[in-house]
Simulated assay, not measured.
Amino acid sequence: MFALIRLYIIIFLFEYTLSEDILLPSFLTSNQSFSSSTTSLYLCHVHQLNNSKEFFLQGYNIVNGGNTSYVHHLLLYECSIKDKLIYSGLCGMYSVRLMPRSVYHNCQTRIIIAWAKGGQLKYDYPIDTGLQITSYTQLLLEVHFESMIPSNHSIGVHLRFYPKDIKPQYEIGVLTLGTLARSPLFLPPRLNQIRFPTYCVNDCLKYYLQNNHTMNIFSILVHAHKRATRIILKENNFNRLIDRNPFEFHRQEIVYYNKPYPQINSSSELSLICYYSTENDYSKGIYGGHDSDDEMCQAFLYYYPKIESFPLCLSIPVYKNKNILNNNQNWSLKRSLLINNQLELNFNHLKTLQYEVSREAAT
């Protein structure tokens, strides 16, 4: 009898589970001036949720996931403003001036969903956890296409909510680690291995994890581009949370953890280390940037309980001699090794960026 009642309850909840699709408008993906571009292209769309009260996100699916061969990444941001925003168009590093300032400053900060090439098309949060969506929430969908866009490409996200009036025990958050998308990262050519570390320092975690607050990490997505070969995330320089070895650009899957989940507290310090190979680059070094032929080093930590004012903890490289970071020179293996040694020997070349919300957190 109890099993039958439980079955009816499950069926009832399943039937009344709420959902909503957030898709790029068809007029964007069918615009020939966009799709004929020979470089990477970012398209964004602000979506208004029609909630009369708060909901909790239970999971999501990538819509039209079987047609993602031209998609570099997909991000969903939560806007930090109640005023109604309207925008559908170009965005990203090279189109910032085309975006309304209100959208750029208020919507490209807190990432709540991150998907990259080759990742899973369905994602479920752990039982008793959910991501809160308020009655005034606005979401910005950002899709990075590579080289071209298939006409009428309906890429987007299908959000799955808990039924009304069901509030999970824990609210989840997403913490972005690594570097800014436009960081002054520089990789000399002709080298088999280059090690690039970034940090979320203890001072940062101590500030946000006060009063014995502990972050329970239940999944992690690491992200880099074509020259990345390995990515490691360590806590306190010895507890290895993740080691993607080898890192595969076309297979950027989220790593899930089983209970008991890894924990981070005020005594922790995080190191995200990306390894690259430029052995097939002969004539120029590689800079940090958005495109697949540029490089970056980032990680997205899914955790609970959420810390409202802590969406990112980034660091940026600060080089003593910026004159060596250019391609106006004749490259040789000897020169590349010399420059790389200077970069690696400068142990203090990374400084912690502001912990507060930064509009440049977008990848």
Rank of each mutant, 00 (worst) to 15 (best):
F300P: 03
S268L: 08
N326L: 00
N236A: 06
S309K: 15
R335F: 07
I339Q: 01
V255K: 10
M296Q: 11
S309E: 13
N327P: 02
I307R: 01
Y319G: 03
R335G: 01
L343D: 03
L312C: 10
L345N: 15
P311A: 03
Y304R: 09
E308A: 11
S309Y: 04
E295L: 05
Q342C: 08
N245I: 11
E235G: 02
P317E: 02
K306I: 09
S268Q: 01
E308V: 11
N321I: 08
Y256P: 00
N265E: 00
L241E: 00
S336Y: 10
S336P: 03
R251V: 06
L345P: 03
S336A: 13
C313A: 10
K322G: 15
C297W: 07
L337W: 01
Y319R: 04
D294N: 14
F310R: 00
P262E: 02
D281A: 05
N237R: 12
Y275K: 04
W331P: 02
C274G: 14
R240H: 04
F249V: 13
F238S: 15
N328L: 06
L272S: 02
K334C: 05
N239V: 05
Q342R: 15
C274A: 14
C297H: 12
N346M: 00
N341M: 05
E308M: 11
I242H: 04
K322L: 08
R251C: 07
Y303R: 01
K306Y: 03
I307A: 05
P317T: 10
L333I: 14
F310E: 00
L325D: 07
Y275T: 08
D281V: 00
S309H: 14
N236L: 01
Y261C: 00
N323T: 14
F310D: 07
Y302N: 13
Y287Q: 09
K306C: 04
I307W: 07
N341Y: 05
N258C: 00
F238M: 07
Q342W: 07
S283A: 12
S309L: 03
S267P: 00
S268D: 04
P305H: 07
H290N: 15
Y256W: 06
A299T: 08
R244T: 05
K322F: 06
T278V: 09
S283M: 12
L337I: 13
S292Q: 10
N340K: 14
R335A: 12
I273H: 04
N265D: 15
V255I: 09
K306S: 07
C274D: 11
C313I: 08
L270W: 03
Y282H: 13
I316V: 13
Y302I: 02
D243C: 02
C274E: 01
H290L: 12
V255N: 05
L272E: 06
I339L: 02
W331M: 08
Y319K: 08
E235A: 03
N326H: 07
S309Q: 12
I316Y: 09
D281S: 12
I242V: 15
L337D: 11
N265V: 03
Q263Y: 06
D294R: 01
E344Y: 14
N245W: 04
K259C: 01
I242P: 01
E235L: 09
L338Y: 13
P305L: 05
L301S: 03
M296R: 09
N326G: 13
D291A: 12
S267C: 06
Q252Y: 03
R251H: 10
E235N: 14
N326I: 04
S277A: 06
E253G: 02
D243I: 05
